[in-house]
Design a protein around this nucleic acid. Sequence first.
DNA 1: TGGGGTTAT
DNA 2: ATAACCC
Length: 439
Amino acid sequence: MARALAAGSTAHRVIVHIDLDCFYAQVEMIHNPELREKPLGVQQKYLVVTCNYEARKLGIKKLMSVRDAKEKCPQLILVNGEDLTPYREISYKVTELLEEFSPLVERLGFDENFVDITEMVEKKLGQLQRDGLSKVSVCGHVYNDQSICLQDMMHVRLIIGSQIAAEMRETMHNRLGLTGCAGVASNKLLSKLVSGTFKPNQQTVLLPESCHHLIESLDHIRKVPGIGFKTTKRLELLGLSSIRDLQTCSPEILVKELGVAVAERIQKLSCGEDDSLVTPSGPPQSFSDEDSFKKCSSEVEVKKKIEELLTNLLDRIHNDGRKPRTIRLTIRQFSLTNKWFNRESRQCPIPPHIIQKFGTGTYDVVSPLVDILMKLFRKMINVEMPFHITLLSVCFSNLKALPSCTRGSIGFYLTRTSSHASARTCIQEMESVPQDQAH
DNA sequence: TGGGGTTAT
DNA sequence: ATAACCC
C-alpha cells in the first residue's frame, strides 16, 4: 500500500529537494577555516565557478571570468578547484546521509539531491493521528505566506515533510558541517523551484494552492528545469517566451516542433506538473576526467595528457572496485564559432584481457589503454594534418561489479549494507570474515 | 565558460 | 555516437 504510493501515485507524494549553499566554496572553507570570513572564489582555468557569500556581497557572480572578478574585488581570494576529488567525496557523503532517511535519493550534479519521503511522512502521520493533529507546526518558510489548514491532509503531509527536511539539514550540519536549502513539495519540479526561494541556508514548503504562483513567478521558460538552451531557442522561434505562452500554446504546434515526448513533458512542466519519479542514483554509471587548454597540436602532447587523465581515472576506478567494459575519448576542436559546442567522441569495448588486469594491479594496464585511446584519437583526427585541440576527456563506463559480488554471495550482502557501498570494501570485508563464519 | 554527470534517440 | 538535459 505505502509502497504503491511512493512508486506510482501522483496524488500524495512528498518530495524534498536539498541544495547545498555554494558547495565548492563551502568545501574549501571547511578545508581552511581561515577563509570563512573572507571573500572566496573557486577557480577553474580562467573562471570563478562559484564563490562564498562574502564574495557575493561584493558583486562576484558564478561563472564570472577571473579578470572581471579581480577587477570588481581585488581582495578576492581564489583557490583552484580543477581537481574535483574533495568535492566528489563530500558530495557522496551527503547523498549517503540522506539515504539514511529514505532509500529514494536522486543526485543532480554534486550539490543537489531529491529525496522521496512519502513513506516516512505516511508513517509519522499514522503516529500523529492517534493523539490529534492540532499541534503539528511547520519548519521554515511557507511559500507565498499561504495559511495552513490542518483539515487538509496534504497540508499536514507537507508540514511533516518540512520537519523531516529540517532534520536532514540539521544532520548535514552536525555531521558534515554543511549548510544548504531545502524545498518541500508534491513533485520534483516544484520542490526544486521552491527550495531556491529563500537562500542561503533556509527551507521552504509549497502548499498546493500556491503552485501557480510559484510557476508563474518564473520570468522566462528557460528558468524551467528541463527546458534547456536548445528547446528555448526553438520555442522562441515559435514566439513563445513566457510561462503563460507555453501553458496556452496548442499541443499540436509543440508536437510538430519538438516531437510528442518533449512537447508533452515541457507543457506539463509549464503547469507545475511533473510525474517523474525520484530515481535512486546508486553508484556512478561512469567515471571521467577531463582537461581543457588553449592549444594542443601534436600527437606527443596528446599522449602525455591522455596518460595523466588515465592514471587519475585508474585510481578512482580501483577505489570503486567495479570494472568498466567501455572506454571513451572525447575531444573539442578549436573553432572560432561554436567554441564550447563541438565535442566529438569515439568509444570502444575494453578487451577482456585488459579488464582482468584492473583488479590485480600487478600488470601494467596503462600502456595498452593509452594505445587504445590513441587509436580512438586517430579515428577523429588525421594526425598527418595540422590540428588544434582544446579539450581531452577520458571516460570509463558500462561498469560491472566484481564476480564475487553477485547476488547470493556473501559479498552481495556486505556491499549493500556497508556505508561505503563499494566492491573494494566488500572484498576487504570478505577477506576479514573468519572462515567458519563465511559459510 | 569548467569539470563533471544523466537519459533518450 | 550524438544530442539533449542538469549542476
